[in-house]
């Protein structure tokens, strides 16, 4: 706390920042718990995609509300956009690679509407 500004709005911003920091940290922790507890690669991927992305966004929101300077906020917005754009791509590539190399126990999937044969995988087109 470098500056003391006893205004209502700054107090409110700090409170909201604190709440979103806590929520973000909780979601990050939950994502990690999921990544350790889930027993399939795809289940873990779910944990790493959704709660982790929102957790990071909330942490950055808390940070933005604390520093309150435009140059910082624009950079943080950029991080959020990168995160939103890249996390699904990474998740998709990892899960597709898992399927194609046969690392997924397909019997555990009920129903499994994709009859997949790792040896006869369709050619890459991306």
């Amino acid at each position: 706390m470098t500056e003391v500004d006893p205004g209502f709005w700054t107090t409110l911003a700090d409170v909201v920042a604190g709440v979103s920091l806590l929520a973000g940290a909780f979601l990050t922790l939950a994502a990690a718990v999921g990544a350790v507890r889930f027993d399939s690669l795809l289940g873990r991927m779910h944990a790493v995609t959704k709660p982790q992305v929102l957790g990071l966004i909330l942490l950055l929101l808390g940070l933005a509300l604390r520093v309150r300077s435009w140059s910082a906020v624009t950079m943080l917005a950029l991080v959020v956009v990168f995160q939103l754009a890249t996390a699904p791509v990474a998740a998709h590539l990892v899960s597709r690679a898992g399927f194609r190399t046969g690392k997924i126990d397909e019997d555990a999937l009920v129903p499994n509407e994709m009859e997949h044969d790792a040896a006869a995988a369709p050619p890459d087109r991306d």
């Binding site: 979601l27 939950a30 718990v33 999921g34 889930f38 779910h46 944990a47 709660p51 929102l54």
Partner: peptide, 10 residues
């Protein structure tokens, strides 16, 4: 969705 997956995880 995030809180849902988080709840399933913990």
């Amino acid at each position: 969705a995030s809180f849902n997956v988080a709840w399933i995880a913990i």
